[in-house]
Design a protein around this nucleic acid. Structure first.
Lengths: 343, 343
DNA sequence: TATTTTTACGAAACCGTTTTCGTGTTGATA
DNA sequence: TATCAACACGAAAACGGTTTCGTAAAAATA
């Protein structure tokens, strides 16, 4: 087992001082060509690599960024992580992925754990639990300590920091508008409970589109379900009870589930009823019929978040960039598939 | 902006030495009750938290584990990551997730980057590129340096380390056996190119089941596709050309794709043709018809991998545990759904 | 030759902890 | 009263680097 070699080892072997070795390896002008050659050759031969921890301690910078997401077995979040990872890697940063599991306590614990030196900054999407409690003190502490924080997707106005989100309202608006233009009149919304910020925005877009086209928003055409577990009976009842010719679902799973139900009721998609979902994941692409969705471009969200974070991390603390917070709002794209094809 | 407080700060304020502060905060018996109370109170009040980096440097242990996966927008790998994260967190470890993107160079680069102090060990699933090149020198170097390494799913015999995998061969065997028992005779296999280790094992299971039931393995019933991108024409041709009443696909996507094709050929699933896939992801649960799959239990794989890694990390270097390598082979489960229901 | 300037390197501080080893006081023992 | 533990604390080394500053020797100048 080869032990790692340190500056001290090289210094001892070559009978020079540690500082000389350090400088030689950085190609400092202070050191003579001869000495540098000797040291560099020795280092190469013994495969010397500086210890990252020591460097981090010295620079007070780890080149790690902490990413905290509510869940990972989820297409949207994985695309975001992928985007973050891509940008971070290109800038020489590592990504520490932590999962809050939608739990406030876990979110707090993760931050507690990482905040003391483990990472240079955080990228976070709020746990549903946190959004429900509206307690953001842990995040405020992070920013107060001068540690950069970027929120994405599930964000809050309570915390002053950079944010990246899609235009959820517009996404829903354009989706419903498309349905109306296709001649749909009785458009339902299947959404999650209110405290999830994005669901609310999407509902606003839904309402706005209806209102602009002089269609009354009927509360009984809006089905609210708990986000954690799908209530099949509720969906079943909903479709049996209401007269609906199009549905906007705030996520893919709700849409797929709903499509299966209406298919069992012998309704044809899209002839009798059209569907649009959010999150352009695998399910939408491969469902039968394929599902029209509002694509959120998670990869771009991730890249933007990473870019904003690293900018802050690398800015001098009293730089102007350190003191201004931006919110980037990315556009969605409506991807039309079979579930909305008009005859 | 509150600056972080260090031992030195406390020592200065309270006019004691740094060592006294350190000991007091660890409740050392060496320090008098009075002094400890004073120091602990002060620390609490100023929210002192030790600097992780400094501790890492001192202990030569980071409590970080590096996870390198070929891709992240993929159900199986995310379930594994989830399992790793769950176990690691419970043991006080952080998870650094890196994505090799199926690239050998990226895999090597990630290891290079993390190997010098950033992590205590690695959990890795081989990039397809690496499996193609059969070059494992970067992994051998890791183990030679005494850094624990656990391979999962896409593993190799070339590297001496702990491994976790499912019984791919058995999974495929049982799946095909089930098809035969259901009366299927013309069973096809849709797989990826040979260099992916798991695909090979699955093919072996497929062949074994056929042979045991005296069914000839016909090469023209085996379709090999590049794993990166799905060749629709090849699938199309395959189904038009061959007479098939059941298909085993080595992953979910191939299965879903294939089902769509045969449905377009007006074949009924499962009446005319049955399907079984691997990876029990969202697609299988929500496809139409729902897909029978060989579940790989990624979460358990992840937990096992993390457990093995952390055992090694925490063992003394010349412990007996440090020198024995185990390969854990987890059982698969056949989850039967509509795509194989027998009238 | 005496003085100044380079050149080439080493000593030491520092990042924030932990930990070993003293050491000055105090109280107990002989 | 002299001796010895026990007690409570501090100095310093160590983890592995970077960086500032000081300085001896060589080279350049006067």
């Amino acid at each position: 087992m080869k032990k790692k070699i340190t500056l001290k080892d090289i210094a001892r072997e070559l009978e020079v001082s540690i500082s000389t070795v350090s400088k030689a390896l950085k190609n400092s002008e202070e050191i003579s060509r001869d000495t540098k050659d000797k040291i560099q050759a020795f280092a190469k031969q013994h495969n010397y690599k500086p210890n990252n921890i020591a460097i981090s301690l010295k620079n007070r910078r780890t080149h790690n960024i902490g990413v905290i997401i509510p869940k990972i077995v989820h297409h949207f979040f994985t695309t975001v992580v992928k985007g973050i990872e891509r940008y971070a890697t290109s800038k020489g940063y590592n990504v520490l992925v932590c999962i809050s599991n939608e739990s406030f306590e876990k979110e707090v614990a993760i931050i507690e754990l990482l905040v003391n030196g483990s990472v240079d900054g955080f990228i976070l999407s709020l746990a549903s639990d946190t959004q429900k409690r509206k307690d953001y003190s842990h995040l405020k502490e992070v920013t107060e300590q001068g540690i950069p924080l970027v929120l994405f997707d599930r964000i809050t106005d309570e915390v002053k920091c950079d944010k990246v989100t899609i235009n959820d309202k517009e996404g829903a608006y354009l989706a419903v508008k498309k349905l109306i233009e296709n001649g749909r009149k009785k458009i339902a919304l299947i959404t999650t409970e209110d405290y999830i910020s994005v669901s609310n925005s999407r509902k606003e877009g839904y309402c706005q589109a209806l209102e602009e086209h002089n269609i009354l928003v009927k509360e009984n055409l809006i089905l609210r379900l708990p986000s954690m577990k799908i209530d099949e009976d509720a969906i079943n009842d909903f479709f049996k009870r209401e007269d609906i010719d199009a549905v906007l679902c705030v996520n893919e799973i709700l849409a797929i589930y709903s499509m299966r139900f209406v298919q069992k009721l012998s309704l044809r998609i899209p002839e009798d009823i059209a569907f649009i979902g959010f999150t352009d994941g695998m399910l939408s692409k491969f469902s039968n019929p394929t599902l029209t969705t509002v694509a959120q471009h998670g990869g771009m969200i991730g890249e933007a978040a990473a870019r904003l974070l690293i900018e802050k991390v690398e800015s001098d603390d009293d730089d102007e960039v350190a003191e201004t917070y931006t919110t980037e709002i990315l556009k969605t794209t409506l991807i039309e598939r079979e579930s909305t094809w008009n005859n």
